[in-house]
Computed example of a mutant assay.
Amino acid sequence: MAADQSAGWANLPDKVVHEIYRRIPCEVDRHHAGRVCLSWRVALAKLKPPVPPAPLPWLLLPEADGEHRPTFSCVLRGWRSTHPFFLPIGARRARYFGSYNGVWLFLAVDVLQGDGKAEDHLLINLHSFQFVDLPNAMRVPIYQADQGLQNIAIVAAALSRPPTERGCVVAGIIELAHSPPARRVAFWRMGDRVVPRHPWAEWPPEEVEDLLYTTGAFIFLTKKEDIRVCREPAIHKDFVQLQLNLQSLVLFRPRGRDGQMVLGRYLVHSRRDVLLVVRLAAPLPYDQAAVEFRVFESKKYVQGKYTRMWNALSGLDGRILFVGRGCSRSYEEADGYPGMEGVYFLDDHSSRRPIVHGPRHACRCSDNGKWSEASLRIDRCFPERAWSKCSPPVWIIP
C-alpha cells in the first residue's frame, strides 16, 4: 500500500507538482520538497516556478538543559513547528548576541565553559560556516605613556556593510570588566581582534539601548529615548577618529508614562524612516513578560532644547516588524505576506544583566511571540523552551 502511494506521488503531473511547491511558504520545506524524488526534481527544474518572496527571519532557540539541541522556527511554517539546527560542537553552548543578513550569526564562545569571564567573539555564516574574528579586548589607557588591554563582552553589534566586503566597520555595545560592569559604545574594523583606543572613552555619556546603521551613519538609542548619530568613523591601527558634530545629539520631547514597566526599546528602519518600538510589561516587579508593544515615528518638534518628538502610530499599516537589539528588521504584508502584520519579538531579557562577572546566568527562552495591533494582545506562538544556561534566543536573517 505504501509503495502504491509513493508511486502515485512520483507520477503527479508537472503542473500539480508546481502548484504544491508554490503553496509551501517555508524556504526549508521548499528545499525538502525538491528532494522528494527524481520526478519532482525534474518537474521543478522544467517548470521554473516563480521565485517566492524573501523569507522572514527564523527564531533560533539555543541548547537547553543539555538535552534540547538548537532548533529554529519559521514564522511561515505554522509557528510552533521547528527544524533541527546544526552548529559546530564548540558553538552549541555559545552566547548569541545578534545577526546580519545572509544567515550571519554573532556569537561568543565561553572559553572556560561556564566561567563567563573569557569569551571568544565570532561572526559565523550558517550556510558556509565561514567565520570572522571579532575583538575580545579593548585597548584602554593605563598610564600616560602606556596602554593596556581589558577584556570585553559584546552585547550587540551593527555593520556598515556586508562582513566580507572591504572597509566594513562595526559599531558595538560592549561591556567592560569593571566593578560594577560598565557598558560603552565601541567601533572597530571587521577582523580586528582588539578594539582600538577611543579618544572619548565614555562616548556617549548616556546608557545606550539599541543601535543600527543607515544612510552612512550609526544611530544609537539612549535610555532617555534620544538619538545619538555618528558618521562612519575613521579607524586607524591604534585609535578611532570619531566624526562628531554639534548635531550628533537629537533630543526628543519626553513621552508621557502610563505606569507600565519598559522591558526594552528598539530601533527599526522602515519605509525610509526610523521607528521606535517599546516593549512593555505589567507594573508588577515579579512579572517580566511582555504584555504590549507601542510603535512610534519621529516627528519634527521645536521647543526649547527639543527638536523632535516620538509620535505614536495609529496603526502598523501592513508593517511586519521583527525586533531585537542590533538586528531589527521591517517587512511588508504587500510583498507576499498577507495577514502577517504585527510586532514579532524574542526573549532578550537576560541580555540586560551583567555578562563579564561570574558564571553565566540562566536565560529564559519562553517570552517569544507576536503582538498584534488589531487584537491588542500577545500571541506566544513560538515553541516553548526550557531555560538555557548559555544564551537567549536570536533572529536568523536569511
Rank of each mutant, 00 (worst) to 15 (best):
S6Q: 13
S6E: 14
H18W: 06
Y21G: 01
R23F: 12
C26K: 02
D29I: 01
R30L: 09
V36T: 08
L44G: 01
K48D: 13
P55Y: 06
L56G: 01
P57G: 03
W58L: 12
A64R: 08
A64C: 13
H68G: 03
R69N: 13
R69S: 14
R77Q: 12
R77P: 00
F86P: 00
P88T: 09
G90K: 15
R93M: 07
F97V: 05
G98T: 06
F106E: 00
D110A: 05
D110L: 02
D115S: 13
K117W: 10
E119M: 11
L126M: 15
F129T: 06
F131H: 14
V132P: 00
D133Y: 11
D133L: 11
D133A: 13
P135F: 05
N151T: 10
N151L: 12
I154A: 01
L159I: 02
S160R: 04
P162E: 09
P163E: 04
I173E: 03
I174D: 02
I174C: 15
P181D: 07
R183T: 14
R183S: 10
V185N: 01
A186H: 02
F187C: 04
F187I: 04
F187R: 02
R189F: 01
M190H: 08
M190A: 10
V195C: 06
H198L: 10
H198D: 06
W200H: 14
A201I: 09
P205G: 00
L212P: 02
L212Q: 03
L221W: 04
I227R: 08
R228V: 15
C230N: 11
E232G: 00
L244F: 09
S248N: 14
L249Q: 07
F252P: 00
P254L: 05
G256A: 13
R257S: 13
G259C: 08
L263A: 06
G264Q: 07
R265G: 03
V274H: 00
L280T: 04
A281M: 09
A281T: 09
A289C: 13
V295R: 01
E297T: 14
S298Y: 00
V302R: 14
W310V: 04
A312H: 08
A312F: 07
S314E: 15
F322I: 05
F322L: 05
F322S: 01
C327K: 01
E332W: 09
A334Y: 07
G336E: 06
G342T: 04
D348E: 15
V356T: 12
P359H: 06
R360Q: 12
R360Y: 02
C363L: 07
R364Y: 08
R364H: 12
K370L: 15
K370M: 12
S375L: 14
D379V: 09
D379K: 13
R380V: 00
E384C: 10
A386M: 11
K389W: 11
S391N: 07
P393K: 05
V394G: 01
W395Q: 05
I396R: 01
